[in-house]
Design a protein around this nucleic acid. Structure first.
Length: 488
RNA sequence: CGGGGUGUAGCGCAGCCCGGUAGCGCGCGUCGUUCGGGACGACGAGGCCGGAGGUUCGAAUCCUCUCACCCCGACCA
């Protein structure tokens, strides 16, 4: 079997598809725009989910579950919100099937038309705020810090596995607060969690920023985001955290009595990350040999390959090694497959992104050593089998750190400051990446630039320094730079 | 929703122009030889050729109509 993955240089888009399919992460399903997440891909998502869930709970959030279906009328209660999602909603109109009297199989029973159509949730603000109305009466009921792990449906015209599918898995947090300041703080707390998760667990550096009015979530007062840079120079919005002000409280009449027994509308936030993160993870680290996974999220962190194949003395050594590694909390597998040869296994484990591979043959046993191969650099070395666990623990950390450092370096090399429109365009066309430039702050200019360059303002970085300058397009005064990029 | 493409074995494809009842590679099964970077041989299993009509003695192949999916754009996490 020859190498099957299209190189990134040749066709980045095809490379991505190859990785997803060859590493058995996901497949297209029988349903248009929907993917089947396969065990390898789902295991990564589970690791992401578990860690995020811990982080949410550590900051006082609890999980709940709200319905998949939303009455149509709910969606139209917040004007901007409807506008944002109306074009991509799946609508349920009937609740029963019947046999076609003409023998054409099963048809929709026309007598089972719903009084009010149901919308398959594209996000749950409306159903949740309708519910919160009944839950919140007093300031003592606040804050309400709820998250849900769910699937949502957005009827996309064009889909890409993990990055954009009609149905996807995510978490959506919906919180209610007594004060504006507290809600704003919540938005930022979550943004920090997202950034920390992306950088420390995914080893994917992100920029925390604020979205422009044009890119803001429909119904939000302010949208914060984390933006990552992929290897092809395109940006990926990896997570968003919204300060919703009192928009939904007003739309759904959610009021509470404050300490002075006065009625006030509550302040809200919502925030989410999705299986899109898996796509971001792939495009941040992987190479032409396949998937590269950060150890903290890798379903299998260490794989032991017997050379040339399982045999009594090798099995024994491998079992001992596994016990030692497992005792240290390391996720380890022993490849006992009898029918493929070592070379094939090496390639296979590299394809699916196992961070460390240990090779053990009789020669190694005689020398009291194992061969250690790391996925990120493809380096191999022989290490004494005694005390190998400590070595592996350190190496996993080192790989995690190396992936992050490498990505930070890449991003630094692909972040360019420009001061005129020609440079903006040529940088976007040549090396891509983030382009830092002055902008006059108007949606009109933003859209014009998008039209001319296909790049959008990814965000206004939170740690931006103020700097006087002139908008790259209009020359009007600007007080700070913003980040432009072509994006997924 | 526009443009392009593809539907034939689990996967990737050929066959279609010039109709005669389906083939190749990989994978799969059994056996043997191999085995420190993607092994080889022998034998074998596996397909109402996306669907529906039509033309014809005969359709994977020609005609009509459909359905699905993929890629590229516009829109979006």
């Amino acid at each position: 079997m020859a190498k099957e993955i299209t190189s990134r240089e040749q066709d980045y888009s095809q490379w991505y598809i190859d990785i997803v399919q060859k590493a058995n992460l996901a497949d297209h399903s029988a349903v248009r725009g929907c993917m089947v997440i396969k065990p390898n891909g789902y295991a990564i998502w589970e690791n992401m989910r578990d860690q995020l869930d811990r982080m949410f709970k550590d900051t006082g959030h609890v999980n709940a579950y709200f319905p998949l279906f939303i009455p149509k009328s709910f969606l139209s209660k917040e004007a901007q919100h409807v506008e944002g999602f109306a074009k991509e909603c799946a609508v349920i109109t009937h609740h029963r099937l019947m046999n076609d009297p003409n023998g054409g199989g099963v048809i929709v029973d026309p007598s089972a038309k719903l009084e009010e159509e149901l919308i398959v949730r594209p996000t749950s603000e409306t159903i949740i705020w309708d519910t919160y109305r009944t839950w919140i009466n007093s300031y003592r009921d606040l804050p309400l810090l709820i998250n849900q792990w769910a699937n949502v449906v957005r009827w996309e015209m064009r889909t890409r596995l993990f990055l954009r599918t009609a149905e996807f898995l995510w978490q959506e947090g919906h919180t209610a607060h007594a004060t504006k300041a507290e809600a704003e703080q919540e938005t930022l707390t979550i943004l920090d969690i997202y950034a920390k998760f992306a950088e420390e667990w995914m080893a994917m550096p992100v920029i925390k920023g604020i979205k422009t009015a044009n890119e803001r979530f429909a119904g939000a007062v302010e949208t914060y985001c984390i933006e990552a840079l992929m290897q092809d120079g395109k940006a990926l919005q990896a997570g968003t955290s919204h300060f919703l002000g009192q928009n939904f409280a007003k739309a759904f009449d959610v009021k509470f009595s404050n300490e002075n027994n006065e009625q006030e509308y509550v302040w809200a936030t919502s925030w989410g990350v999705s299986t899109r993160l898996v796509g971001g993870l792939i495009m941040t680290h992987s190479d032409d040999d396949g998937l590269v996974l950060p150890p903290k999220l890798a379903p299998t962190q260490v794989v032991i390959v017997p050379i040339p194949k399982p045999a009594a003395e090798i099995d024994e050594a491998a079992e001992k090694l596994m016990r030692e590694l497992k005792a240290n909390g390391i996720r380890v597998k022993y490849d006992t497959d009898m029918k493929s040869r070592p070379g094939f296994k090496f390639a296979q484990h590299e394809l699916v992104g196992v961070p460390i591979r240990l090779g053990i043959g009789s020669r190694d046993l005689a020398n009291g050593q194992v061969e250690v191969a790391r996925r990120d650099t493809k380096e191999k070395s022989n290490q004494p089998i005694d005390g190998i666990a400590n070595y592996i623990i350190r190496l996993l950390d080192e790989i995690q750190q190396n992936l992050f450092d490498r990505s930070v370096k890449f991003r630094a090399e692909h972040t360019t400051e420009v001061d005129n429109f020609d440079d903006l365009k040529s940088v976007l066309d040549s090396k891509g990446g983030f382009v830092s430039a002055h902008w006059d702050g108007t949606t009109e200019t933003e859209l014009k630039i998008k039209e001319l360059t296909k790049a959008t303002i990814r965000c206004i970085p939170l740690d931006n320094e103020s700097e006087r300058g002139a908008c790259v397009l209009t020359g009007k005064p600007s007080v700070q730079r913003v980040l432009f990029a072509r994006a997924y």
